[in-house]
Every structure is written in structure tokens, then in C-alpha cells.
Design a protein around this nucleic acid. Structure first.
Lengths: 221, 221
DNA sequence: AAATAAATTTAGATAAATCTAAATTTATTT
DNA sequence: AAATAAATTTAGATTTATCTAAATTTATTT
């Protein structure tokens, strides 16, 4: 019966590890969870006692196998709930995260297994992030960032690297949703911005920063 | 942002009020929530400060309009989630309560409105209890307890008054689920037990106690 | 390599929800 | 109406997760 707090710490450590690799610092966690560094230190000691993390004073932490499997389970629950909210309840991809943040703490193995079945064992969530299966396995996929495409390339949007709600709403307004087809019309070499044509012929100018946060699957030419 | 604890107290007070009417005692609440009477007293003071209940020392409490509307909202969420778990995820009526107990604390008006729509605005949950609509209105229904039926009466099961998981599993085993048709074959006047025929001709002997906990809708003869 | 800056930990408090045991109030019996 | 029993509240602690400020350790500069 892990408390929500423990679950949130474990998930944060997992995500920071994925991003930065190696071991995760107290300050990185304190920033991620918006708590003081002192609180984080206190909690790290407790998590270490529970054998969920390996903690060396002043040197940061990493997850043990037990901690990692708890983290993957949390990711699984979070992404399955996001998929439910989006696919079944028609809630936008910019709003599902906050609600799933609460739903992921509900404890019931049956619930999650049945939800997975009900959704048809989805492999990716509304943001295109992979959903681990019941064994913790993630599905891999050929994907590149949009900013690596060249003029004339055709591709489909498969995911986003940035989950900020405003960014997602912005993409919606340009019809750059998951599965959207696109064609690179022009790419500025000096600032990396790209002019993109979407379905129906509409064109959008994407900044380099935006292009660095969209995952696409490139079509064969 | 009401805490789960506050929500649980308010829901308990609402349900005890429905059952016993008038004002609810400290000990009734302490029993319902499995906490000490001292803890309940502490919490009642806080709920009174928040104007969710009217509290008179040594004399029990009742909900204010604000408290009541919070309670109805909790009931609505709980029963909609139970309906989802049962109808969409195929989880038995003996297991849905415990999971809904957690889900009901998720905060999001959009979520509940969309869930309601997704489920087709159900009026009753898997136990036959009415689901308040978005305005807090409960649907009424003609129903009587099975023990009030006479020999030869035909009826449909519409609900249960007792939610104990073992009782519900027992009813399942006798095909006495919601909507089951039944015919009273025999009624013992000395102990109130009834012999009941269900669909397919199977017969079951129900104790008086069981018969007092099943709501039915009587057919016209 | 010393000095300074940054990150981390420790110490000491606080708030929320809980507990047990003792004191008080209300209800029931004799 | 006293005495006794039951219910309720108060007093004083405990646990969990958090905080700020001070102390310590590690990293970076000069």
C-alpha cells in the first residue's frame, strides 16, 4: 500500500533518470516535485529504507529493481488512463495529464487489467508515448524529431516530446495532431524553422523549438 | 480542494442521516468510518468551521446545504464509477464498491460530466441505487422489498438494500441479479422465508433476512 | 590550493489526522 | 432523584509529510 507521495517520488526519479541518465540529484527531484530540498532528503532516506532506491549521501539516487517496477507500473496506469480519457471521454490531449495524475494512484490490479482490455491493449497514449504492457515491456517505434526532416520529406506525427498544455493546444490549432500527415515545404538553414503543409493543403510555419518537440515517422520517398 | 478525509466524513454523515434521519451521533460516525470517537469529535469541529455541518456539542450533527451538496456530488461520482466498472469493465457488483471508493475522490468536473455522457446518463448503479444527475436530482421508482410479496406474485429484481460482497455473490449464484424475473412459489408465514422461481425454472429458498434486502418491482397480475 | 559558491543535509517546527486515557456530560436504572 | 452506565469531549501524544534556517559537504573560481 504505497502512499501517493512515495509513488510520486518514484515516478519522478524514474523520469529524471530517463532524461538525464545515471543518478538523480536531490535538487532535480525537488524541482520536479516542487518541494524543498530538505523534504526530498527526508523522503529519500525513507525510500532507501524501503529498498526502492539506492541512496548515497550527497551523491544522488537511482532506482532499485523494485523501485523501477513500481515506476513502470505507475507509467502504465497513467498512460492507460490518459488513453481512456482521450479515446472514450473525448477529453483533449492538453487536459488528460492532470486528471490521470490523480487516477494513477487508484489501487486495483483488476481495474488496470480490465481497463487495458477495454481499450484494446493500446501501445501508445494520446501524446504518442509508449504504454508498458502488463509485463512492463515498452513498444519501440521508428521515430525522428521533425527538425531532422529535409525539404520534400513526407511524414506522420506520432508523438510530442514536450507536454505543456499550451504547446499541445497550439498544435491542435494547426491540425498537427497524432497521425496527421505532413510535407516539408521549406526549411530555413539559418534558424531551423520549417514551413509545413498539412492535410487539406494548409501551411504552417514552425519554429525550430517547436520542430524539436514533435516526433514523426518518415515516409519512404 | 476538499481532502479525502473531509469527503469521507461528509458522505458518511449523509448516509447515516438517510438511514436514521434527524441528527447523527459521534459514535455512529466513528463506527461507520472505523475511527475513534475522539478523532470524530476533532473532525466535527473542523467541518463545522468550514460550514459543512451544524454541530452542537454532545448532540450530534447534520449537514448544511453546502455539506449536503458535497455529499450528493460524492454519491454521484461513486455511483457513476461503479456503473463504469460494471458495465464497461465487466467487474462484478460485489467488487465495484471498493474501487469506486478510491475513484470518487478524483477531482475534475469535466471528467464526471463526460463519464456520465459516455455511460448514457444512467439513472441507477449496478446495485440498483439511484444516481443523482448533475443537478443533484435522484430518480424515484416504484419498489418494494421482496419479503412483502405474496405467493403467486411475479416481480423483477431492481436493487439490493445490503451491499455486503458475500451477500451479492450469493445472489449471483442464485441468478438473482438486477432485472432477474421471479415468481413467489411459497411463503412460510412462521419464519418469513420464501421459495422463489427464477428464469429457467430454477427454485431457491430465501431466508427472511435475504428477502428483506432485495428490492423488486412487482408485476401487475 | 584557497576562497567562494552551490548543493545537500541536519535540526527544529508546523499542520493534519489520528490515537489512548482521563474528564465531563447525557441517558438509563434502580 | 441518586447511582450507574453510556456517550462524548478534552488533554496529551504520535505519525507523516512538509517547511525554514543553519550547518556541512561538494563543486567551481580565482
Amino acid at each position: 500500500m504505497a502512499s501517493q507521495t512515495v509513488e510520486n517520488y518514484i515516478k519522478a526519479i524514474f523520469q529524471l533518470t530517463e532524461r538525464e541518465g545515471g543518478s538523480v540529484s536531490t535538487s532535480a527531484i525537488s524541482q520536479q516535485l516542487a518541494t524543498s530540498a530538505a523534504s526530498v532528503t527526508d523522503m529519500l532516506k525513507k525510500l532507501a529504507e524501503q529498498k526502492l532506491i539506492a541512496y548515497v549521501k550527497y551523491r544522488g539516487v537511482h532506482l532499485t529493481p523494485g523501485g523501477k517496477s513500481m515506476a513502470v507500473e505507475m507509467i502504465r496506469k497513467h498512460r492507460l488512463w490518459e488513453t481512456f480519457l482521450h479515446d472514450k471521454l473525448a477529453i483533449g490531449w492538453d487536459a488528460v495529464h492532470e486528471i490521470a495524475e490523480q487516477l494513477e494512484h487508484v489501487q486495483s490490479a483488476t481495474l488496470i487489467d480490465q481497463l487495458d482490455a477495454f481499450l484494446g491493449y493500446p501501445k501508445f497514449d494520446p501524446h504518442g508515448d509508449p504504454i508498458p504492457d502488463a509485463n512492463g515491456k515498452f513498444t519501440l517505434r521508428n521515430q525522428v524529431l521533425l527538425n531532422t526532416l529535409q525539404e520534400g520529406d513526407q511524414a506522420q506525427v506520432v508523438g510530442v516530446r514536450e507536454h505543456d498544455a499550451d504547446f499541445l493546444k497550439y498544435l491542435d490549432s494547426r491540425a498537427l495532431h497524432i497521425n496527421a500527415s505532413l510535407l516539408i515545404k521549406e526549411k530555413q538553414s539559418y534558424d531551423g524553422s520549417v514551413r509545413v503543409e498539412t492535410a487539406g493543403g494548409a501551411e504552417t510555419l514552425l519554429s525550430s523549438k517547436a520542430a524539436q518537440n514533435i516526433y514523426v515517422k518518415k515516409n519512404l520517398n
